[in-house]
Design a protein around this nucleic acid. Structure first.
Lengths: 260, 260
DNA sequence: GAGTGGTCTAGACCACGTA
DNA sequence: ACGTGGTCTAGACCACTCG
């Protein structure tokens, strides 16, 4: 029988207490010194155990204060919301009611720049990699806590001189503006990647260790199959649920390979 | 000017080499002993730096062999595939062609059990938390590498005695069977959560450290608004892209709050 | 000032993989 | 046999938070 190393046993012991609810979200764990006593190991070993829990996203350690059980509070992220602002099914309605965001102050920062986009974006826009795009970068916050990076890229040639280049909110939406400019989108391709954040994302979103992100890449496409917009949303995993709904009308076949 | 601690400097240095491509996926890093020499620090400090990179999902360390730069290879996960087996837009077609899975052997394990489901599932099925469900648990693998946990829950009262209770593949799909039993689904609610895996998931999917998962929860609903099926898919972040497509016909409004 | 976590050292022994 | 990473110890000093 394989026996786990000491630090792993301590990790499992503490994780068990969290999963069983003996340690509730927000609770403070025993101090490192206390755990050294309790388990009869060196501080290094205790710290290895705590570090593992931190990287699982279960606890955070705050210098000078202690270690605490984390809590997740999920905002609802609806990729469909852009085109279908209102939920259409009773289940979705109920789901959204149950997850109603508390009355915290929303705020956002916007900055607009001209830049050659990352290779991933250039590829999706079918541009040369040194072609210039307009980038609208936003960080959205709720009650001071950032919860959402939203970077939109438009080919400069398509939006030159339009209000998309001014760093202010556009109430009627970027899609409307693109349509007015003659670049009406009729299709979109959505991709979602799951990964650990870059140090830059950790900084911009104030992420704790062990917090993964979802990267939602949206490519908007015209009837002529021309991509005119790429949006990259970065969502902290501990603050979001991605939700959508489907109806019979969208279900073209009855069987599928995924869910037998 | 804030100066980073020594281990953080080493982390940044090594991450830079990876991002700049000086260390390519699959490459071996300098050994810990070599890094101790190179940076003039203790082995503990070097290991702290390597541990950080591992938890970012950038490297893996293998006992007795060394540390290596990781690679991500993305399978395509289409939540829509269940109802729309074939891609409908040229962009999606191209996307899937570009990501064609290599010709590795697919395989799967299936086991079927009667069990009281986790509270999350019971709630979605609108069952008492001690009501029994049929669980079809599957792990799908490609070339020996597991890439997909797929657990389907059906209320026992609805599927008793049907072939859903036998641990074999159902070629025509579970949806068809449910329809034949008089529980035709007309809507679905999809939720995706992003988090670090549990130890059980790490084991079943053979995940390395720093690998987050996406949890896709699908609730299938009849015309009478009765939930008849909950599917929980667990996808390793380093092996999947979640992809779907949208068309004008689904775009009911022109503006949205997400993408100005 | 007392207690907390953050950083770091210099060693030691072990299990593992490869040659 | 040797080099690799995995585990663990016993200390030390620091920065931070809080009463």
């Amino acid at each position: 029988m394989a026996v786990h190393p000491r630090h792993r046993q301590i990790t499992d012991e503490l994780r068990g207490m969290i999963n069983r609810g003996e340690l509730a979200p927000g609770d403070q764990l025993a101090s490192e010194a206390a755990l050294v006593e309790q388990f009869g190991v060196s501080r290094t070993t205790v710290r290895a155990a705590l570090s593992a829990l931190a990287n699982e996203g279960l606890i955070t350690s705050e210098s000078g204060r202690g270690s605490f059980v984390r809590q997740r509070k999920h905002h609802i992220y609806r990729p469909q919301a852009e085109f279908c602002p209102r939920p259409a099914s009773p289940e979705m309605d109920r789901f959204m009611t149950e997850h109603t965001a508390e009355g915290r102050q929303p705020s956002q920062t916007i900055d607009v720049a001209l830049a050659t986009p990352p290779a991933e974006v250039a590829r999706r826009l079918e541009q040369d990699k040194d072609a210039v795009t307009v980038v609208r970068r936003r960080v959205r916050s709720l009650g001071g806590e950032p919860y959402f990076i939203n970077d939109s890229y438009f080919p400069l040639s398509l939006v030159q001189g339009s209000e998309l280049m001014s760093p202010t909110d556009i109430a009627r939406g970027a899609n409307r503006v693109l349509t007015e400019l003659g670049h009406h989108q009729v299709r979109a391709l959505d991709e979602v990647y799951i990964r650990m954040p870059t140090p830059d994302e950790v900084y911009r979103l104030r992420l704790g260790p062990g917090t993964p992100v979802a990267v939602h890449v949206l490519t908007g496409i015209t009837a002529e199959s021309k991509p005119v917009r790429v949006v990259i949303n970065v969502l902290p995993g501990d603050r979001h649920v991605i939700v959508w709904e489907r109806h019979r009308s969208l279900m073209e076949a009855d069987e599928g390979e995924l869910d037998n």
